[in-house]
Design a protein around this nucleic acid. Structure first.
Length: 757
DNA sequence: AACACCGCGTTTTTT
DNA sequence: ACGCGGTGTT
């Protein structure tokens, strides 16, 4: 029976059951192992997992088990094809995805996967460059700049070059530089003859490159570009790694950019060992350089490839899936995929036409309260929105109803100012020539080094093309500064020297603790007049803790733990986030929600101008990306999806009116349950409405608790008077005049108490 | 060095 | 509306 299963499902592998007999002494256990690899898979998944070594493109729809396929494929290669773990490389975009993959591989293997290269593009590029720093012409202790460090460098550069930030905004320069690097273009590759604007950017790009070089720092895009160039230009290393990585796996392939694709191609010269998984319908990062075309490029450049589509969805109900399928068919040039499920249709998708953003939030919060009241977990519900600004209304209402919630995507741990300051000191201890760091903390906490002194340092550094540290030292020895400034500056330089001296023999945790104390940062952040000082102190302690438990698993022994720790902090800035385990309603943008799933999902603010965003409406390419985002949003829902939109909302200060999103109009009405009929014009508001069908309806509905003219009380809005009643049962809605405002509320959800008049 | 005021922009985010 | 960064005031 087992062998039968193997033979049937393994038609496509070059590993026969015979080979298994000879390959192992412990036949029984081997067969069991293989069963555990392929038994939990459906036909398409199994075909992917057991495919022979060749270029494979797995088109994996939302919720179709793409991670499972990747994980099982890797385990299959190891246990059945006896590929050495050393030969396995698996690349993801986020640390979270990489960690999850590693964890699942390890639990299937019942063994450590530490010999495999599993990580993000940036993480693996970093490991590669660390290992071959010399060949890459990088200092042994090179540090990684995150994007705020990068921006700081650019700003300094502009100041040195006496360029006004208004003329050439640092943000735009940063964008330009990163876009060039992501496309594999060095400043020397850009022709001088291009247009004037490009020339100005180009000049900064050049200067920035030399500055980074001098500082011994590398930004995110540089990690990828350097790794690419090194493997391209160093024949010995190229052969070595091509030889080593016999099996290359890539997750979220539709999100790869030019340089990532090029790097992968270099690793796979025979083009027979790339196993890439992606979904063109979930490509939502075009705006940051991801090239969905890489999927087509792959098919052109890897002519021997095989495509397998994973279309069975294990996540959502039939209705939700139908809606998702329907919406995405409006896009052009798709690879073509249609999700299906064995699950029942389930509930219809509820569409709520809110009066305004407050009404929308009330509706959502009421629904969540009902859901929790039915015994469900708050953490199984999510509110998804297009832009971060939208979270506020929901936060307010959740707070008001005492419902715990968590907003994703705020400031991350390692991005907090107090943490960045400590890290800057530590980085300075590793490398004195790190200008971004010295710039950051030379007067933090304030120690009397003013702008005047700072200017002198910068001027000298720029003139002599030396680091800020060297320039500061030079100013002291040359005795050109006024006494007070000289003293202050000397004290700073001395502080760094003292720290360096005193921490030499401490453990990593002790080092961090020592630095926080002796730079007086702890004292600085403990001042209770400071807002949120308790949080900041807590964060500093958490940093010490993180350093204490840090395990340096890099093989290079001659690089200090501190250096590795700092780089890890830059590369995994999101990893350390506390307070995650309380049962909370989840609030996040649609982008953040990609890859996640929730039984109950609210897709809110589904209005033209918001979603799709105003900037995307008149651009076909952008609009299609928005539509994919909508597809991502819908497919997050497992059991129940609510879509809401508001007829009017406050945006940038003033009231705006919008109509329901075109995406919503693309959904078939039979899948929808529209809670309140949409009205295009604002309602006539009269205390005594003239005869209308609505009033007649009301007369036929004497069961209603609510009557016109009745006084009522609402938890949030206070007391008011009912102006109008419409609908019945669940859909009954009333217009109430509160102090100054009139609101339509659903009586089924609003918390109303009647007041006897 | 700390605080007040003004003007500006304002999709989406990882590394 | 709101928050951030830059500038000006005490």
């Amino acid at each position: 029976m087992l062998l039968l299963l193997l033979n049937k499902s393994n038609r496509q592998t070059h590993v026969s059951a015979m080979k298994l007999y000879t390959a192992t002494e412990n036949l029984q256990s081997k067969i069991m192992d293989i069963t555990s690899i392929i038994a939990p898979l459906n036909d398409a998944q199994r075909a992917a997992v057991t495919a022979p070594s060749q270029a494979m493109l797995i088109l994996a729809g939302a919720g179709s088990g793409k991670t499972r396929v990747l994980v099982h494929r890797i385990v299959w290669q190891i246990q059945v094809n006896h590929v050495s773990p050393q030969s396995i490389i698996a690349v993801t975009f986020t640390n979270k995805a990489a960690n999850e993959m590693r964890g699942r591989i390890e639990s299937l293997l019942e063994n450590s996967a530490s010999a495999m290269w599993i990580g993000t593009f940036h993480g693996l590029a970093h490991r590669f460059l660390r290992r071959h720093a010399k060949e890459a012409h990088l200092p042994k202790d090179f540090q990684v700049l995150d994007s705020s460090d990068q921006q700081r460098m650019i700003k300094r550069l502009l100041a040195d070059l006496k360029i006004n930030e208004k003329e050439l905004p640092p943000k735009e320069i940063q964008w330009f530089i990163n876009a060039q690097k992501d496309a594999g273009i060095r400043s020397k590759d850009i022709l001088e003859t291009t247009d004037k604007n490009t020339r100005r950017f180009l000049r900064i790009y050049r200067e920035y490159e030399t500055l980074c070089e001098r500082n011994g720092v590398v930004d995110f895009a540089e990690l990828l570009l350097r790794a690419y160039e090194l493997i391209r230009d160093d024949e010995r290393l190229r052969y070595q790694y091509q030889e080593r990585f016999s099996q290359i796996h890539v997750d979220e392939f539709q999100d790869t950019n030019t340089i990532q694709y090029a790097w992968l191609t270099l690793l796979s010269p025979n083009r027979d060992n790339m196993f890439v998984v992606g979904d063109d319908d979930q490509a939502i990062y075009g705006w940051r350089g991801a090239k969905i075309e890489n999927i087509y490029k792959f098919q052109r450049e890897y002519p021997q490839h095989q495509i397998i589509k994973l279309e069975q969805n294990y996540r959502s109900t039939g209705s939700i899936l139908k809606a998702a399928n329907q919406i995405i068919t409006n896009n052009t040039g798709r690879m073509g995929k249609s999700l299906w499920t064995e699950m029942a249709d389930g509930e219809k998708i509820t569409v709520y036409a809110a009066y305004d953003e407050v009404d929308e939030a009330n509706y959502v919060v009421e629904r969540i309260k009902n859901w929790v009241g039915e015994g469900n977990k708050r953490s199984d519900s999510a509110i998804l929105y297009r832009s971060n600004a939208q979270s506020r209304q929901f936060e307010e209402k959740l707070m008001l109803s005492n419902t715990p919630y968590r907003v994703y995507g705020g400031l991350r741990f390692y991005d907090r100012a107090e943490i960045k300051n400590v890290l800057a000191y530590l980085r300075l201890l590793v490398n004195r020539h790190d200008d971004a760091s010295i710039d950051r903390i030379i007067n933090t906490p304030t120690r009397g080094i003013g702008l005047k002194t700072l200017d002198e340092i910068r001027k000298l550094a720029h003139e002599k093309q030396i680091s800020l540290w060297a320039a500061a030292n030079s100013l002291i020895t040359e005795k050109v500064l006024p006494n007070r400034a000289a003293n202050a500056l000397f004290n700073f330089l001395d502080l760094i020297a003292q720290l360096d001296n005193k921490i030499a023999n401490l453990t990593l945790g002790e080092k961090v603790h020592f630095v926080i104390e002796h730079t007086r940062l702890m004292a600085f952040y403990s001042q209770d007049k400071l807002e949120k000082s308790a949080d900041k102190v807590e964060n500093l302690k958490e940093l010490v803790n993180a350093a204490t438990v840090f395990i340096n698993d890099e093989i290079e022994k001659d690089i200090s733990d501190l250096s590795i720790f700092l780089n890890r902090a830059a590369l995994e800035s999101g990893a350390l986030q506390g307070e995650e385990f309380e049962d909370c309603v989840q609030l996040m943008t649609l982008h953040t929600a990609k890859g996640l799933e929730f039984p109950l999902v609210f897709l809110v603010g589904v209005e033209d101008g918001l979603f799709p965003s105003q900037q995307s409406i008149f651009d076909q390419v952008k609009l299609e990306e928005e539509r994919r985002l909508c597809y991502v949003g819908i497919t997050r829902a497992m059991r129940k999806l609510h879509i809401t939109y508001a007829e009017s909302r406050r945006l940038y200060g003033d009231k705006t009116y919008a109509r329901k999103s075109r995406f919503l109009r693309e959904l078939p009405t039979e899948l929808l349950d529209e809670v309140r009929p949409k009205r295009e014009v604002s309602r006539p508001i009269t205390a005594k409405p003239i005869f209308s069908t609505v009033n007649k309806l009301l007369e036929l509905e004497p069961d209603s608790k609510f009557k016109k003219g009745q006084h009522i009380h609402h938890e949030t809005f206070g007391s008011g008077i009912i102006l109008n009643v419409e609908g019945e049962g669940e859909k009954e809605r009333i217009l109430i005049k509160f102090r100054g405002v009139e609101k339509w509320l659903m009586t089924a959800y609003a918390e109303l108490t009647t007041i006897r008049s």
